[in-house]
Design a protein around this nucleic acid. Structure first.
Lengths: 183, 183
DNA sequence: ACGTGATAGTTGTATATAACAACTAATTGC
DNA sequence: GCAATTAGTTGTTATATACAACTATCACGT
């Protein structure tokens, strides 16, 4: 095992200086804790007030609202989920009148998913509720800290996603091409 | 519905000034995105290298390692999970030789849960892997930004937990005492 | 214009996680 | 020592998700 500290350096760090290992660890630890809290709070954050739309549905609707109508496969990619998962979520949302399937005129297999007005209303309500929760949570933050945090968090999220993508690609690359019979 | 902005103000904000609603929204949105990414990465972050110990097991072991041996009920409270859930997790960990049940001398019903050496090793490995992931992710952050982010994230997590606790208490308080028959 | 192969989406099945409720066993109080 | 309490476990259920098998449609080449 024995893994030594990686030899990477930020631009403003003297070569050889400690790469702030403690801070990295702090971020990692804190994030794990936050993740768990968030998981527990997740349902409450939404379900409490708008119990007819679940968390995962929110993600779907948000994506469609932001990116506009798209087909199921595109949606799956957008929310980085399996087509089968998305299919079921969409089915539920259609059943509940939050999504409409509109046949794609140029492809009989596909259909475009269009949020209904009800969906927009539900989303708006969710967003408002969430904003209130967060406002309360952050009420004693200074504007400066809050802005800083928002920006750093955004940056971190980007890096996090990026790292995950690279990781996935490495895995794919490392997978030694599932050899079939060469006969 | 129509919810107006809450009348809360931070100390350094002029009364009446906008409470940085955009920044709050940015934090909320980003965090939701990060949460989803984290969820997807979670398994990979651990399972890739140490596939014999799952995420939830990690949480259990971490708690016991940090707080010392405790009984199942205390553990459940520590990781804010249901006793039944914990019971199963513990059973699995005992089966896999990561935990030992040590009979509580003063209470035959309870047993103290003690991590084994193997558990410590696994935890250390996890931590190291995670640290490496995060180091790679954050390799081009300046020390200053990283430190700032670590500290803001910690503060945020604290506030987040706090808000959740208050919320829970409110709910309990609001629950109108499940009236039994007064006969 | 028809058949073969690719593609869009659905459904079947399986896993991880976790909660509520019902139960068992051991303890404490009287 | 029996009743009420408490510690923990097991039964059942629900969400979220993925892989694999399947169906329906399209697109291309002859």
């Amino acid at each position: 095992m024995s893994v030594s500290a990686p030899p990477i350096q930020a631009a403003d760090r003297a070569p050889g200086a400690a790469p702030a290992r403690d801070d990295v660890a702090a971020v990692a630890d804190t994030l794990v804790g936050l993740f768990r809290s968030f998981g527990r709070a997740r349902a409450r954050l939404l379900a409490a007030a708008a119990h007819d739309v679940e968390w995962s549905a929110h993600v779907v609707l948000k994506c469609l609202a932001t990116e506009g109508p798209m087909r199921s496969s595109a949606l799956a990619e957008c929310i980085q989920s399996d087509p089968s998962t998305v299919s079921r979520q969409v089915a539920a949302l259609v059943r509940d009148g939050l999504l409409e399937r509109r046949a794609d005129p140029v492809d009989g297999r596909a259909s475009l998913l269009v949020p209904t007005d009800k969906a927009a209303a539900v989303l708006a309500e969710h967003d408002e509720i969430r904003l209130q929760h967060f406002s309360r949570m952050l009420h004693d933050w200074s504007d400066r800290d809050l802005r800083r945090f928002a920006s750093l968090l955004q940056r971190f999220t980007t890096d996090f996603d990026g790292a995950n993508h690279s990781w996935l690609e490495e895995q794919v690359a490392a997978a030694p091409a599932p050899q079939e019979e060469t006969s």
